[in-house]
Design a protein around this nucleic acid. Structure first.
Lengths: 346, 346
DNA sequence: TGATGGCTTGCAAACGTTTGTTAGCCCCGA
DNA sequence: TCGGGGCTAACAAACGTTTGCAAGCCATCA
């Protein structure tokens, strides 16, 4: 299973490692080399080109650490995913990954590097400060507030270059980009009721405030209508979710005719479990997801869901962050959720 | 849609920013503070604790840039995804993202930070050197060789701390961890033939060598048997894939009874398209995917696929890299693919 | 009493850039 | 002939740590 090709690691490193080395060869000072490589007009065009050619020839690139230290600008944005509740929630959660992908695109396009951290707040209370005040990043993006809302607030009070993905609460300090989760939850429940459902179930763990607001929204929709809503907690991590769901749905079989899922992933698992239990979707049970991940369109039947515009979210986050770094003001962005009608509703 | 809460960015930064600042308060030198915070036994226990308390109180953390420059160790691993062929392939490709997630877990557990880059080799020929010789990372992980095999070989010749995910070719220089793609392709085709299929189709673009080897494997399986294999190219990116597939499969309708898909994602799209076109899976057409992404088990019917052990792959990659950084020898890892029997085969 | 040695701590030299200031040089005009 | 100004390039001071070396202090021992 494992090849036995050992690979030796002995290679002579090239001799020219610093600006001074190049300078020595070219017969100029390190400072001049620095300017030449930066394309400064202060150095004569001819020597500039000579130096650049020399650097290319020796495959030389200035040490970024030294450069960053000197300029006090790193060109790096920290992206951190706090796994507050849901210790088991893997960083490879599809929603995070999708957002991360878009962020990577946005950031690289603007010349930033992206430093990814996974934080377990319960183990390391200073998970956020560790990133903001390490001198390693120009700004920080927090993906998901989880149960760390207060922590983020506190840090943001002293550290301006921070933008979070999540839910907006009036008066909050930290800049946030996200969807109106409450409106999304309401929209989902209303759609199910419009489809004839009366006994709704909400599937999801509400420790993270985003999810809690979706549940609140669903409750808003129920209020004053001839319908009921039961909340069945269920973890978000892939491994444990399906078993839990099977349990929950079996125990409550027959007592519900529609599901509001806190995420597309939960919706997909629920669909699978219901199918196993012999239910038809949407005839026996209607279901609506949340997120509109690319794979929501691929399920059978295709999943009706509440769409978050992740691509735009990533764009707004980076735009806000860049503004903040440049010293300009930034603003919260609360996006309206959109109902994607597919075939799991009547 | 957008709230108008402008957020001002004016905050007085704390006054204590350097070791020397702390030292001034504590009445010791910067050097001592450095040792104290590092927990060095060289400084008296009492002063050490005083200094640590002081640092905590002022919320001070040593500047990482300076530290890294001085120690010549960054604690950062670069992870780069070359999008060589497939310009349109988004970094949010589920396979990359899944591997990336596991890598993030492995790396953070071992105390490394992860710097993510997306590279478009066609635009920036020095995409890899830019990372290896920037002084910013202790090592580099390349996710997928794409069509950049030679480039990686060349760089690896001078830069030992590099590990790639991909295919192993006898005699290659750069350390690689991956699945035996050819065996996987063969396995898939053999399984389909065993299920009664005779007219196979391979779906996928073979510019990346990993995919090319899967196709070779499938051809191996055909050879000498009463079966045929047609290769239908199809891009890997989500947006364009489905349309292409619809086209391809319609044009060839009836002329095949089984599909070897180059990835689970392609398999899922194919299933959807076939369903639209009124085919039943697996009765009319059998299909086997590749990767065994978490969502392969969620399709309807659940997808038979060739499993790559991504979690183990991430583990091996990081282990190899760590060995290399420590100056120890590393070795290629070629994992055997595993056939995951589900319900898209007979 | 003086030397020895173990603890602590300070000193100062790196790490490799960037960049403000200074200095040489040459050409031009008065 | 001389002064001034425009180009170039060198000098040197940061950026904030880490760490080898030296030095001070105190106690112990001969």
């Amino acid at each position: 299973m494992t090849s036995d090709n050992d690979i030796s690691g002995d290679v002579a490193p090239p001799q020219v490692r610093t600006l001074a080395d190049i300078g020595r060869i070219a017969g100029v000072s390190a400072g001049t080399v620095s300017r030449a490589l930066a394309g400064s007009p202060l150095v004569k065009a001819k020597t500039r080109e000579q130096i650049q050619a020399l650097a290319r020839e020796h495959d030389f690139r200035p040490n970024q650490m030294a450069s960053k230290l000197r300029t006090r600008r790193t060109g790096v944005i920290g992206v951190v995913i706090p796994l507050g509740h849901e210790r088991r929630q893997h960083i490879s959660d599809p929603f995070f990954m999708t957002l991360l992908g878009y962020l990577a695109d946005e950031l690289t396009e603007r010349g930033y590097d992206l430093m990814l951290s996974r934080a377990i707040p319960d183990d390391t209370p200073d998970w956020l400060e560790r990133i903001t005040s390490s001198g390693m990043v120009d700004g920080v993006i927090v993906i998901g507030q989880s149960d760390q809302y207060d922590k983020i607030e506190r840090v943001a009070a002293n550290y301006p270059n921070l933008v979070a993905w999540g839910t907006y609460r009036p008066g909050q300090i930290h800049c946030v980009v996200g969807t109106d989760n409450r409106a999304g939850g309401r929209m989902a429940a209303e759609r199910l009721i419009a489809g004839g459902a009366r006994k709704l179930v909400f599937l999801g763990d509400t420790t993270g405030i985003e999810i809690a607001e979706r549940l609140d929204g669903a409750r808003d929709a129920i209020a004053g209508r001839d319908a009921t809503l039961v909340h069945l907690p269920c973890h978000l991590s892939n491994e444990t979710m399906e078993g839990e769901l099977r349990e929950q749905l079996r125990a409550n079989a027959g007592s519900f005719d529609a599901i509001v899922a806190a995420s597309d992933l939960i919706a997909m698992s629920a669909m699978k479990v219901l199918h196993e239990q012999g239910m038809t979707i949407p005839d026996d049970v209607q279901i609506i997801g949340f997120d509109d991940l690319p794979l929501a369109a691929q399920t059978m039947p295709p999943l009706t869901t509440i769409r978050q515009d992740i691509a735009r979210g990533a764009h707004e986050i980076v735009a806000d962050l860049e503004a903040s770094i440049a010293g300009r003001s930034k603003q919260h962005v609360v996006m309206e959720p959109i109902l994607m009608e597919r075939q799991t509703t009547l």
